[in-house]
Write a protein that binds this DNA or RNA. Structure first.
Length: 858
RNA sequence: GCGGGCGUGGCGGAACUGGUAGACGCGCCAGACUUAGGAUCUGGUGACGCAAGUCGUGGGGGUUCGAGUCCCUCCGCCCGCACCA
């Protein structure tokens, strides 16, 4: 009697047994090699989504596979639990952020446990817990003492309604994403991490990160944005100071026709103090939108300050100094020299203000004497002209010569500029890690003494007023100065939540340590061997974590620079989108499919428009709740579907048909097992001495599958591993009931079915465990080592070789594996289809690629 | 504009260093069976053709005995960055 496999019952059973026996508890005192598998921890938004299911399934396959392969695996889980949504919930629903967050964590923990992940739940952490953030405060103080944290005035996006700083991503078309109010630029005193200290190292260390996707590496390289160039000093005529500019084209200095300052340049501000017109111009620049569209349509505008900059190579020549709206304060030195002939922006500016345009680089092969620039600047390599001592040199040589001369004159030197800016971590928010600092009128910035950590968030806060609740709290910010005892003010900014996630992987190594990390534990476990998460974190999170690890090393908490030795970025989970007759988005569960292929609203029966497939998102309502899928089909089906078909780095299309297919396979495996069970020999029966052809073929299929699946999992080609397992299942089904009375058939069948269970265990752990038990094993499958392919069986004795005539396939011949070339040649030439294709023409040559192809050339 | 990726049946995708294109799954077609199930089982399924065969990996060209894979060129789609001097 073949019974249905009941995932709901079975999955619960094995989850309980694994938990009870502590199968996935990691210990550092272990002789085996360590392997740290980590998936990006979730933000506790309410319920898990399909992106989580995919992420954690991928990680669990790696974790279970590595464990079976004999590694001491660390696979922890926690919660990125601080953040704005908790405060929004507080405002909208009147629930305290902590209460909201911990309730979400409880829900999501239960959901994750239903997935059957091989996690060490004893190491669970939540970044909003004082047991976590107190150590973050300690780290902050260590970095402050080491000079890696500082405070400075910075220009920020300020929402005047919500009274808070907004990240660039939170400014949409120049307005606050929540309030809709026009965002202002404000100069505010903010805390910064000195990530730029590590710019060069963050760039060059990529050489050691071979197991990172090239794409992420390039994105970070772009973000860090190294430019090799020169600083050039322009003495200011009639003044005793000089203007410092950065350029990547010192070779074009002889073509300079003006200098320009950023509206936020200190010199511009100083001049504006005495010049109301300039002050107005600067104010107008700062009001200008920062959106992409605003930048693209903005005219180049400048204000002539009347200052004269002296050309470093031609003391007789002075250049007008403008304040210009296209010069950025936070790149280079906030000032440029303009060479209109060889920079498009400079050219636009020069044409508008009637400045000279002198070409100083001529395209190769062009006569310099009649070379002129029209309305397109010349940017490519060429020969220097009109440039005194640089004439005749190519661009690279001219750069070197110009820098050498500048250096000799004391008017400049070679410099490297980076696009990367220091990381502003101040947030005017309640639900974040308090920055452990006290401001004293007499002593200045005073760190909170370690003995007073943690600086706890107050529970009794109000979200009635806009702005930072910590600032509004009646008592919290009032503190005595730790240095002089006078009344002082506690810092009310909290940390950007990216700080929380910049070191959590280290905390997992010793999650209950009374210091940020236990040095022995991090020395044992770090770096993370395999990190898995979404591509959306390619820059910020991954860059911050790389920086923070270096910062932690500098203050002695860890001994490494790179936190993630291997990185895998998964694709998104996508789904069709639906709109009702009113144009509003509909959930897939609200859509009913008619037999003629049309979609209608499940309730009203009105027509539904089916839109293109997009990444699942709440805003488009094209989400499917994982928990309901797991409840209906079981976790193994959901996991199997996540791994089937699409390569893990690509986007995955969620379809009902695909889930049904995965469901059918779980049932099919169980059926294969139950149908065969009565005829199988007992577990551990000795290997028969000989195998007849059908049994031998099945053994070969089994061992080939072991080799292929092992390699596929090792290389993250899980969709291929899935296909191999389908093939082996097909082979078992085709083998059917063992023929004849020999022991070899049942034995080979048992080997094949056991292998199916063992190889699918990382993907469908519950079903595999159940099969293993049904096969009569007393041990848990999670404790059984990964199977090894026997090379004697992993290859076929006979191979089918393609025979081509002039490169076109004409026949195939069966040959013994590794047959000598002469035998292959004669077998090919004897084939009637080959002879027909040769058409009686004389044989010119025969190319034999062993075991693959024979090409007959006529 | 700069940087990167991708383009293979009706669909998702296989194809290791150039060597039988389309594994495996979905869908579809035909049949069987039935305890009518989320069924299951068997066979078929790139196009054209009765067949022999011809064509076929975005288009065009090239290298090679042989190209989805390498080179050149064009087209299309996607992603990241973008007034970065």
């Amino acid at each position: 009697m073949v019974s249905r496999y009941n995932p709901q019952k079975t999955e619960k059973k094995w989850q309980a047994i694994w938990a009870e026996r502590g199968c996935f508890a990691a210990r550092a005192d272990d002789a085996r090699a360590k392997y740290y598998v980590l998936e990006m921890f979730p933000y506790p938004s309410g319920r898990i989504h399909m992106g989580h299911v995919r992420n954690y399934t991928l990680g669990d396959v790696v974790a279970r596979f590595k464990r079976a392969r004999g590694f001491n695996v660390l696979h922890p889980m926690g919660w990125d639990a601080f953040g704005l949504p908790a405060e929004n919930a507080a405002r909208e629903k009147g629930v305290h952020p902590a209460e909201w967050t911990y309730a979400n964590i409880a829900t999501m923990r239960t959901e994750l446990k239903r997935m059957g992940l091989s996690l060490d739940w004893d190491r669970e952490i939540a970044t909003c817990h004082p047991g976590y953030y107190r150590h973050q405060q300690k780290l902050f103080l260590d970095l402050l003492a080491a000079g890696l944290v500082y405070r400075k005035e910075a220009s920020v996006n300020w929402d005047p309604v919500d009274r808070t700083v907004l990240a660039n991503e939170q400014v949409i078309d120049g307005r606050g994403w929540r309030s809709g109010a026009p965002v202002e630029r404000r100069q505010l005193s903010q805390w910064f991490f000195r990530i730029t200290d590590f710019a060069e190292d963050l760039l060059s260390a990529f050489r050691g990160l071979e197991r990172w996707p090239e794409r992420v590496r390039l994105m970070q390289e772009n973000w860090i944005g190294r430019s090799d160039g020169a600083r050039v000093f322009f003495p200011l005529h009639g003044r005793d100071d000089r203007l410092e500019v950065f350029t990547t084209r010192p070779d074009t200095l002889f073509g300079a026709s003006f200098c320009a300052l950023s509206p936020n340049h200190p010199l511009a501000a100083a001049l504006a103090a005495a010049d109301p017109a300039l002050a107005d111009f600067i104010a107008a620049c700062n009001r200008r939108g920062t959106s992409e569209a605003a930048i693209e349509t903005a005219e180049k505008e400048g204000f002539n300050t009347g200052l004269k900059a002296v050309h470093p190579f031609r003391a007789e020549l002075t250049l007008p100094v403008y304040v210009a709206n296209f010069v950025l304060m936070d790149y280079g030195t906030g000032a440029i020299f303009g060479c209109p002939a060889h920079d498009q922006r400079d050219l636009d500016f020069a044409r508008k203000y009637g400045l000279p345009v002198l070409p100083v680089v001529a395209p190769p092969g062009v006569d310099p004497s009649d070379y002129a620039i029209a309305d397109t600047a010349y940017l490519d390599d060429g020969v220097s002209i009109n440039s005194d001592f640089l004439d005749g040199l190519d661009v690279a040589a001219a750069k070197r010569a110009a820098i050498a001369r500048l250096t000799a004159l004391g008017l400049g030197d070679a410099t490297v500029a980076y696009r990367l800016r220091d990381w502003g971590v101040s947030r005017q928010r309640y639900w974040g890690c308090p920055i452990p600092v006290i401001h004293c009128a007499a002593c200045g910035i005073v760190p909170v003494p370690e003995a007073d950590l943690p600086v706890l968030l107050p529970d009794d806060v109000s979200f009635e007023r806009p702005g930072n609740p910590l600032d509004h709290h009646p008592t919290w910010k009032h503190a005595a100065c730790p240095a002089c005892g006078a009344a002082a003010r506690r810092e009310t900014d909290t940390c950007d939540t990216f700080v929380d996630s910049a070191w959590y992987f280290a905390r997992f190594c010793s999650p209950r340590a009374d210091r940020p990390v236990d040095r022995a534990a991090v020395d044992y476990w770090l770096p993370v061997d395999q990190y898995i998460g979404g591509i959306e974190h390619a820059i910020l999170h991954l860059l911050y974590a790389r920086f923070f690890t270096r910062a932690m090393r500098r203050v002695g908490h860890v001994g490494i620079d790179e936190p993630f030795a291997g990185l895998f970025t998964q694709g998104m989970v996508c789904h069709q989108t639906f709109r009702g007759a009113d144009g509003k988005w509909l959930y897939p569960s609200e859509v009913r499919w008619l037999s003629d292929g049309r979609a209608v609203h499940a309730g009203s029966g009105t027509e539904v428009t089916v839109g293109r497939s997009e990444a699942m998102s709440k805003s488009k309502k094209n989400t499917v709740d994982p928990d309901s899928i797991i409840a209906a089909y079981g976790a193994d089906t959901a996991r199997w579907f996540m791994l089937s078909d699409s390569p893990p780095e690509r986007d995955l299309e969620w379809t009902v048909a695909g889930v049904d297919g995965a469901w059918r396979f779980t049932q099919r495996l169980w059926r294969l097992l139950e149908a065969a069970l009565p005829t199988l020999p007992a577990a551990g029966t000795a290997v028969p001495s000989a195998f007849a052809a059908p049994a031998l073929a099945l053994r070969r299929a089994t061992h080939k599958t072991i080799a292929a699946v092992s390699e596929d999992i090792e290389t993250f080609r899980f969709n291929r591993a899935v296909a191999r397992l389908y093939e082996l299942a097909n082979a078992v089904a085709e083998f059917g009931a063992p023929a004849g009375g020999g022991a070899d058939g049942p034995w080979a069948q048992r080997e094949a079915i056991e292998t199916l269970a063992r190889l699918s265990a990382p993907m469908m752990p519950h079903l595999a465990e159940e099969m293993w038990q049904a096969l009569g094993h007393a041990t848990l499958l999670v404790d059984v080592p990964w199977p090894e392919a026997d090379p004697a069986f992993a290859v076929d004795a006979q191979v089918t070789v393609a025979v081509q005539v002039n490169g076109k396939l004409r026949a195939t011949v069966a040959l013994p594996r590794d047959a000598v070339a002469e035998a292959a040649r004669s077998a090919a030439l004897a084939d009637p289809a080959v002879q027909r294709a040769m058409g009686g023409k004389p044989l010119r040559k025969v190319i034999v690629v062993p075991n693959r192809v024979i090409n007959v050339v006529v």
